[in-house]
């Protein structure tokens, strides 16, 4: 890159940064801000139509006979969302869950990502599970290694709109008796998943002689050392799945009294992109009291 080109990019950035906004927004007052609700309204209509279509397809499939392979779930629709991504339906085939905006980041290529609140060894967004199905009454969900988060949309919207202090996130390794996801339900919730970082950070600490991702105000040398150590670790491990991979077990309770257990395997490739697929573990008849 010659100096002329370097200068021209700088000038372009100055013009880009100093351009005027096409118009100025007006503050609507604290009590009138309904940003999330407004944005969700058109999405709600589209989602409702999509849900109806899915239900119709499932209904026709069941009516026509055994549409699905024996190993597939009989009625569940499981989709996963990543930050800045779209919903991805998880099936029995390995499916990419994260798009390019949500991979793990190799630190030597982006040393500046090292810390934000102390050292942060990687950037990773949570995945959200939306579990629905025509005949599903409820489901239980459990993560073997990671952490699950329960996101209460109603409380979240209230928090966003008027800054209410209502809690909208709850963390645990399992949740039971969950209602199936329904986009039109104002009290809907979604289960999110975060990978477990402890083992990775423990190994990282060994590599870096005690400097870990929680170290505050590291020196530049420590930052560099951390980045190199991270990459060494990646080279040695070369397997994100062994660190962050997880099995999320979903037990589906159907209206006819049967249950179905699905193991959703979350794996990561060499670039840190997440994949998901499920395997049906068993199907039992359960008589409800």
């Amino acid at each position: 890159m010659n100096s002329e080109k370097r200068r021209s990019i700088d000038e372009m950035l100055k013009v880009y940064g100093s351009r005027k906004a096409p118009y100025t927004f007006r503050f609507k007052g604290e009590e009138k801000v309904m940003t999330t609700k407004r944005r969700f309204r058109p999405a709600l209509a589209v989602s409702c139509i999509a849900c109806l279509l899915v239900c119709a397809v499932l209904g026709v499939g069941i009516f026509a006979g055994d549409l699905f392979l024996p190993s597939e779930s009989k009625g569940a629709v499981i989709s996963v969302s990543a930050a800045q991504g779209e919903d991805v339906a998880v099936g029995t085939q390995r499916t990419a869950l994260c798009r390019e905006n949500a991979p793990l980041i190799r630190l030597s290529k982006a040393p500046s990502e090292l810390y934000e609140d102390g050292f942060t060894a990687m950037s990773y967004s949570s995945l959200g599970f939306k579990i629905s199905g025509e005949d599903i009454v409820s489901y239980d969900i459990k993560s073997q290694k990671g952490t699950l988060e329960y996101v209460d949309f109603k409380a979240y919207e209230e928090h966003k709109v008027n800054g209410a202090d209502t809690e909208y996130l709850y963390f645990d390794s399992s949740f039971e008796n969950m209602k199936p996801f329904d986009e039109s339900d104002p009290y809907r919730f979604v289960i999110g998943w975060w990978p477990e970082f402890d083992r990775f950070n423990s190994d990282l600490r060994d590599f870096t002689g005690g400097v870990d991702r929680n170290t505050k105000n590291p020196t530049e040398e420590q930052m560099l050392s951390m980045g190199q150590a991270y990459d060494s670790l990646l080279k040695t491990a070369e397997d994100f799945t062994s660190y962050f991979g997880d099995t999320v077990t979903v037990t589906l309770h159907y209206s006819d009294g049967t249950t179905e257990v699905l193991n959703i395997e979350i794996t990561l490739d060499e670039n840190g992109y997440a994949y998901g697929e499920y395997e049906k573990v068993n199907e039992d008849v359960v008589v409800y009291g």
């Binding site: 930050a83 949570s126 979240y156 999110g192």
Partner: peptide, 11 residues
Amino acid sequence: SVKHWYNSRRF
């Protein structure tokens, strides 16, 4: 806002 999946936003 861009940290979580439930705020899927386009840039």
